[in-house]
Amino acid sequence: MLTTVTVLSTSAVLFALGATGVMLRRNPVAMLMCVEIMLNAGNLVLVLGSRAQGNDAGQATALIVLVIAAAEAVVGLGLALVLFRNREPVDVDEPRAVRG
């Protein structure tokens, strides 16, 4: 019970922390890192639920979420590199449009 509460509150705190970081940071690479923290927090709840229910479905879903996180990181980092190529220092508020 104590373990469950600890892990569950950790993942809630991590999710809120990641959301705060997305709002706070102006560097797109740092924002992506905060999104990764939020994804990890969600995955942690999936794995915990899988353990509590004695069911493998949560773990399989967590693996799929890992793949989605990888795809998101690839596209996001590509966008960040395109932003950084032209402007320096970069600010996500600055570009009004990204062609591509």
């Binding site: 706070l24 940071r25 102006r26 560097n27 690479v29 740092a30 992506l32 890192m33 990764e36 996180a69 990888a70 990181a73 690839v74 980092l77 960040a80 590199l81 950084f84 320096e88 220092p89 970069v90 600010d91």
Partner: peptide, 21 residues
């Protein structure tokens, strides 16, 4: 993913300098 982030940060011209919030 983390190594990919590391590569991107290393590729950035000023090492990913950021304006303060």
């Amino acid at each position: 993913i983390v190594v990919l982030f590391l590569f991107v940060v290393a590729l950035l011209p000023p090492g990913g300098r950021e304006l303060s919030s």
